[in-house]
Design a binder for these strands. Structure first.
Lengths: 319, 319
DNA sequence: TTGAAAGCGATACCAT
DNA sequence: ATGGTATCGCTTTCAA
């Protein structure tokens, strides 16, 4: 592989001149320019990024720490993140860490080793580590001194709940998983609690630590023991789908007998029917903000501690 | 940030000795070892990977070129790829390139620039570029001189079709998208054609270039104009789901009136019901082989031109 | 056992 | 306008 020295030698100029040509920076005579370009062509030369990285002390790469890319919400956000980072001249390095906290700790080291310039942090584990000086930004999760981007979980949930009430539901239930760490997503339940207090709606809910994949089982047991439910607010699309299927099996019509509103909106892009009525998170906007704030942080600029991205309420066929 | 020189100076030894300690390589006296470790501790030193990369002329990073990570099959394969690469000491760099061939061409450059040591190539675009000398491996797709890993599309499809026949279907149809480039996935249709010839099953199919997201529309039109169908082999889970929903709307019972078998199996992990009867691709095995073969290639070792990974036939509720 | 020094590939200061 | 040279942080040869 040819290096900048080979090009310089062949062109009969110094490496500085070659560097100037490559980066279109500084004064280069027409004559030198042509000689250098010819040499580059001839040697099929490509500047080595590793050398640049070392000199520049950055890698133009961002790490994405995610529980698993194999989940529709996470893969969607990853998609937009990669797009947005590419536009800003960065690459995205993917790290799935669900079920492997050691891996996460080990790879957090990619910041001091220079392999990544910063990290977008979307995972659950908790350590006693000080993140506040690191170039990190989180989605949904609260970590001391680390900026957090999140949807307007509370307001959007309230809106969804009042919509169900307006549509005539008298016994609105909540079903959703609880986050293991302090997270904005828990405000979906908080909104439900407040809604019950405000309106006198009976408090009927499932809200606990759980694993992905258990939705159907939980939904079934919950629905079986709560025949009075006529409105359902689910904290995720996967739960909404599980509930919808459960009612379908029982021959209970949705939305006539029971109305369902879900928080998320990613399943609608994947599965054409049923079109769920959802609080749709603006995944593209969230990704854009995560990137914007992280790059500010890398640049040692001031950032907000937390930022709320407005979601959309989309009426589908389930409520 | 402390460098190896700072450590050497503080410990009162040469950089060589520090390097030996870090990499546990070569002879180091007990005394020197302790001094170095103490200095490392004191300076909170972490070896810089950028320097290592430059010296070693590799980045221990593999690029994954994928149409979009936001598709259940691709995100699943990405999950397993990252896992497997991590075990081998590599990182995964993600590139979504659907709708952006220029991006793909530009980033292919990460090989000569040293940003990635190799590429796992799962996209559709076609250029007149010679890939045969590059450290690349593909999933499903044929490119001259590039190793290809794929499922046993033909045999598995045949098996699925004969299963439908055995279950009593007389009018078995095929529905699926056609790949724009030479790809093993097209053998799903080839198997159907051969099946019709072998058994005298009438040839009823949709097989054309299409976009993700059009499944429902296509399925509906196809089913509307082919009332005779009593068995359906779909080339993807998203199609199977679209067909299932269409029959559901029409009040036609699956699997009693129409049986559906799908190729893929990723939707079953996401959505609990219906449990589709599927040819389930061994995504974990595929990922393992992609990594194994790519690393061989990077190492300039001989590899097979193509490798078939056996899939599993899983009986669910739709056939 | 140890360390000085060269070298990986690129950039940039500074003199010319 | 141009190029010699030092430098980024690390590994490795080779001589001591």
């Amino acid at each position: 592989m040819a290096s900048i020295h080979d090009v310089a030698k062949l062109a009969g100029v110094g490496t500085t001149t070659v560097s100037r040509v490559i980066n279109k920076k500084g004064y280069v005579s027409q004559e030198a320019l042509e000689k250098v370009n010819k040499a580059i062509e001839e040697l099929n030369y490509t500047p080595n990024q590793l050398g640049k990285n070392l000199k520049a002390k950055n890698s133009k790469t961002i790490g994405l720490f995610i529980p698993t890319i194999s989940h529709p919400f996470f893969s969607r956000i990853a998609h937009f993140l990669e797009d947005e980072l590419y536009k800003k001249g960065y690459r995205l390095l993917l790290v799935n860490s669900q079920g492997n906290p050691e891996k996460e700790i080990k790879l957090l080291n990619m910041i001091p080793t220079g392999q990544v310039d910063g990290i977008i942090y979307i995972t659950y584990y908790q350590y006693q580590m000080d993140f506040s000086k690191l170039p990190i930004v989180t989605l949904d999760r609260h970590i001391d001194g680390v900026p957090c981007i999140t949807s307007d979980n509370y307001e959007a949930s309230k809106k969804a709940l009042y919509y169900l009430k307006k549509e005539g539901c008298k016994n609105i239930a909540f079903i959703g998983g609880k986050a293991a760490t302090p997270s904005e997503t828990n405000k979906r339940f908080l909104a439900y609690e407040d809604f019950c207090k405000e309106t006198g709606n009976p408090s009927i809910y499932y809200y606990d630590l759980m694993l992905h994949g258990e939705e159907k089982m939980i939904a079934k047991a919950f629905i079986d023991s709560h025949k009075e439910i006529d409105g359902l607010f689910t904290a995720s699309d996967l739960f909404a789908n599980a509930c919808y299927q459960t009612y379908l099996e029982k021959g209970i019509n949705v939305p006539e007998k029971v109305k369902i509103v879900s928080f998320d909106g990613v399943l609608n892009d994947l599965i054409p029917e049923p079109k769920f009525t959802v609080v749709k998170q603006r995944v593209d906007e969230i990704a854009r903000e995560l990137v914007r704030v992280l790059l500010l942080r890398i640049d040692n600029k001031e950032t907000n501690q937390i930022e709320y991205i407005p979601s959309e309420f989309v009426i589908g066929e389930t409520a």
